[in-house]
Amino acid sequence: MSDYRYLVRKWVKPEDLNQHGALFGGRLLQWVDEEAAIVAVTQLGTIDVVTRHMSEIGFSARADRGDLLELEYRIVAFGRTSITLSCRVENAVTGHEVLTLDRIVFVAVDAAGVPVAHGRTEATSGTERLRTAG
């Protein structure tokens, strides 16, 4: 789609661990969804977006306490009411892939939750769409 790339880093802390001492998968998915929503909001210029779909999630390696993770997002496509992203999570220290998600779809909605056209077709690198939306 574009060369747009959004990168965020997360530190694995003791409160993020499961009973085996590894990063809890649900915590990682929470991080993935939250950061993806931030990308969707800045790209579409509205805070009124909902997660509509996530493709199969591939957990490739574990992450442990103290690991630094990089969550990288790319835009796959703009739809009439949606934006589709991909996400790859990598351990910044080891370089091992931790998770991949090929498709995360967000939909712009109105106050009643009905999908609405957003009018975006190209990526932006900043947050100017949020400032000009209102």
Rank of each mutant, 00 (worst) to 15 (best):
V116T: 15
W11D: 14
V41A: 10
R65D: 00
L29R: 08
V41K: 04
P115L: 12
D16Q: 06
C87D: 10
G119H: 13
T121I: 07
I104C: 01
D110N: 13
G26A: 01
S2V: 01
V50G: 00
Y73W: 11
A37M: 12
V107I: 11
A117M: 12
G66Q: 06
K13C: 01
D48T: 10
V98T: 05
H53Y: 15
G25L: 03
G26Y: 04
M1K: 04
I38R: 13
T127V: 14
A92N: 11
G126T: 14
G126I: 02
G58A: 14
T84K: 02
N18E: 02
T84I: 05
L68R: 05
V116Q: 14
E70Y: 11
L28V: 05
F78H: 08
R9T: 13
G66T: 11
R80D: 12
L71E: 10
T124R: 10
Y73C: 11
T100Q: 08
N18M: 03
R120F: 06
R74C: 10
A40M: 08
F24K: 00
Y73M: 13
L130N: 08
V114G: 12
E15G: 07
A108H: 15
F59P: 03
T100I: 06
T121E: 14
S125M: 10
F78P: 09
R129S: 08
L130I: 13
W11K: 02
I47M: 09
N18W: 02
H53I: 00
